[in-house]
Design a protein around this nucleic acid. Sequence first.
DNA 1: ACTGTTTACGTAAACGATTACAAAAAACGG
DNA 2: CCGTTTTTTGTAATCGTTTACGTAAACAGT
Lengths: 349, 349
Amino acid sequence: MKKKRTRLKDIAEKLGVTPATVSRALRNRIEIGAETREKIQALAREMHYHPNLNASHLRTQRNFTIGVVVPRIVHEYMASILRGILEEAHVHNYQVIISVTDHLYEREVMAIETFSAGFVDGILLCVSNHTRDFSHVEQLKSEGIPFVLFDKDISKVEAPRVIVDDYKGAMMAVEHLIEQGFVHIAHIQDNLVNHSSQKRMKGYYSALKKHGIPKNPDFVVQLDHISIAQSKEATLALLRAYPSIDALFGITDEIAIGAMQAASELGRSIPREFGVVGFSNWQISSVVSPSLTTVAQPGSEMGKTATRLLIQRIEHPDTYGDRFPTKILKTKLLVRESSFREKVVICQE
Amino acid sequence: MKKKRTRLKDIAEKLGVTPATVSRALRNRIEIGAETREKIQALAREMHYHPNLNASHLRTQRNFTIGVVVPRIVHEYMASILRGILEEAHVHNYQVIISVTDHLYEREVMAIETFSAGFVDGILLCVSNHTRDFSHVEQLKSEGIPFVLFDKDISKVEAPRVIVDDYKGAMMAVEHLIEQGFVHIAHIQDNLVNHSSQKRMKGYYSALKKHGIPKNPDFVVQLDHISIAQSKEATLALLRAYPSIDALFGITDEIAIGAMQAASELGRSIPREFGVVGFSNWQISSVVSPSLTTVAQPGSEMGKTATRLLIQRIEHPDTYGDRFPTKILKTKLLVRESSFREKVVICQE
DNA sequence: ACTGTTTACGTAAACGATTACAAAAAACGG
DNA sequence: CCGTTTTTTGTAATCGTTTACGTAAACAGT
């Protein structure tokens, strides 16, 4: 019992006019009589007319759709970015189609190829951690398909991108610890495959340097695989080997939480004897006890900014064609219990 | 410098054949000469040909796209459902376009209308908490557009749906508490607007009844707005008023965690003097200390099941046309520290 | 009344891919 | 070598909208 959808032609025939007239009436063009327009619009409503978007898009060469390629989706920060993208796209009447690559390079390339097939007007891409070859991005450029990179930074390619100020964020975090009177500040990082991690590390070093604290390579630990358990182990080892360490900056909240667990286990009181700061402001960080001081990244804002940038490039390709702007969004330090010793304004989120 | 995309025609002209031949060659039809096919495929690759999907879809009346309508996206459980949907859709070569309603009824209706406009082959819908009027769902049925409801149950409408066994999950949770020797078991619930909450409540009552524990309405608290803080307050009040309460089943992990905080504050040791079980298995629940026993819902599996069901209905409309199956997925009790007193196998996830 | 200008609508050609049907070419059998 | 079958390719219509262009009618101005 498949019903056929009503077409322009159906409406036209019922009223004894041509599809052209109906089309014009429904899109509120001027060159149409007031009464005919009324009649047509009424009938269209009655017949539940919806334009066939494939036909429309084929004809107009516009899709009002943007493709989003991301490595993961079950991830708080990424979900909030997606939310921003969906929100902003909705405002501009765009649809969003999403492809998850699971950090697999081939799936990333595949997704981009599929999207390029005239299905979307532009692409938002967050490259996977393992992406080393950027020919697919270059391809987008040479094919003239509008796109914007976000979150993951790729200095390798010249392209419009929206990223977050990891360097400053990390620096703020560590400076905050220093201001709170902590001196021997350790750092647990990941494998540094992405630029963000490297920048956070640099921020850590810069903060130390700025305050005249000599950097000690023994205080920096690299983790292959990030998890709370791994971080806990690493911190236990670290604190046993160097008991003088009195604070830790974790490259993610997961690491920071593991570190807190380790410190507690060793009888260190947080924040009195041991200060901890994380990065990303996961929901979890405000729930653990003591609550975790962290650096917040504006996920939703990043999604919105990237989308806005993309839509500009889609709708005004000439104006923006040759320029590749980089937008850097500010990070924000949220001071909570895990690091707060002196009188500092607590920023609840 | 907008380059035109290569079309069938372009390839055809270069080789002195017709678009029809090229089309056949690229789609590996039998009725084509081996050498011409080779030549065409080679040239197509070289010219970076991708079929214009709008044209293709218009012609074939198929979109290979499904529309997903959800109330939220920054939500662990929902994100894992989405992941399942994207995964399964990818397997079947479908694209997924997502619309977030923010629990606003008008946006839900809007989204469905937009998707019905010949843009998608089918729709996956998770209704918002405030949806009372289901005429938009009825509309889908009468227009013959394939769709599947998921997660939120609506007994109001007859429709294919995939849900989770909240009743059994809650029952398992409470029975587990009873088996652990807890007797005076409280329950904090939400405003019961959705069926899941009601079913979990029923599960709670059934478990008590089954084990001959009289139900006490004073032990059940309803919260307007769910948050850890609210739950903590409520639990504090509850335990002060009824000190005999020795366990609590929270309708979500958030509530359970608030309850744990309250119990700790009152000097109750968990799980020795006070047992807690939550619902949903948020990441958070395995991180808090003590870790929280909870009921896991198979998010990814739900997404996959719903998608599979939808694609079946899309591709075999006649076979499935009139039947409205309800798939109920099993929930699973994850026993962790917050409730474990006797020897029970601990199930780590 | 005769031009010139609006206004309102019809005509028909796109957009790019697919496919029923036809036709040409090749293969085959006697 | 001719008729028949099979294989390969061309022809042209189609999917549903949009839009440049044309035209008839209405209207205005002199």
